[in-house]
Deep mutational scan, measured.
Amino acid sequence: AQEYRALYDYTAQNPDELDLSAGDILEVILEGEDGWWTVERNGQRGFVPGSYLEKL
């Protein structure tokens, strides 16, 4: 798994998404072809927009 940093804040719109704060460090589990990536942070897993992340 790769570590990424959130570039922007994101507020989850659905229960299966995660909130992001700019600067958060996340582990990317799966890069979805639809642009939604499965990530894990502090034991929580959910979808976030891949375009909001940069690889560390």
Rank of each mutant, 00 (worst) to 15 (best):
Thr38Arg: 12
Ser21Lys: 15
Gly35Ile: 02
Gln2Met: 15
Trp36Val: 14
Asp16Gly: 13
Arg45Leu: 05
Val39Pro: 00
Val39Ala: 09
Gly46His: 02
Glu3Val: 09
Arg45Asp: 04
Thr11Phe: 06
Gly35Glu: 07
Asp16Ala: 11
Val28Ile: 06
Glu31Cys: 13
Asn42Gln: 09
Arg5Met: 13
Asp34His: 10
Val28Pro: 04
Gly32Val: 06
Leu30Asn: 15
Trp36Asn: 12
Glu17Ile: 01
Asn42Thr: 08
Asp34Leu: 05
Val39Cys: 13
Tyr52Ser: 09
Gly43Asn: 06
Asp19Gln: 05
Asp16Thr: 14
Pro49Asn: 04
Trp37Lys: 06
Gly50Val: 08
Gly43Ile: 01
Asp34Gly: 10
Leu26Cys: 15
Gly32Phe: 05
Gln13Glu: 10
Gln44His: 11
Lys55Pro: 10
Arg41Ala: 08
Trp37Ser: 07
Ala12Tyr: 00
Arg5Cys: 04
Leu30Met: 15
Val28Ser: 05
Ala6Glu: 00
Gly50Arg: 13
Glu27Ile: 15
Arg5Ile: 11
Gln2Phe: 15
Val28Glu: 02
Asp19Pro: 05
Gly32Leu: 04
Gly23Glu: 04
Leu56Gly: 10
Gln44Tyr: 08
Ser21Asn: 10
Ala6Ile: 07
Ala1Leu: 04
Ala22Ser: 10
Gly46Lys: 04
Gly23Met: 01
Thr38Glu: 14
Thr11Leu: 08
Glu40Lys: 12
Phe47Pro: 01
Leu20Glu: 00
Asn42Phe: 08
Arg45Pro: 02
Trp37Asp: 04
Leu30Trp: 12
Glu54Thr: 08
Tyr52Ala: 11
Tyr52Cys: 11
Glu40Ala: 12
Glu33Arg: 11
Gln44Gly: 05
Tyr4Gly: 07
Leu7Gly: 03
Leu26Val: 14
Glu40Pro: 01
Tyr52Phe: 15
Leu26Tyr: 07
Leu20Cys: 07
Glu54Ile: 04
Glu31Trp: 05
Asn14Met: 10
Tyr52Trp: 07
Glu40His: 05
Gln44Trp: 05
Tyr4Met: 06
Pro15Val: 10
Phe47Lys: 15
Arg41Asn: 09
Ser51Gln: 14
Ala6Gly: 02
Leu53Phe: 09
Ala12Phe: 00
Gln13Pro: 01
Glu40Arg: 13
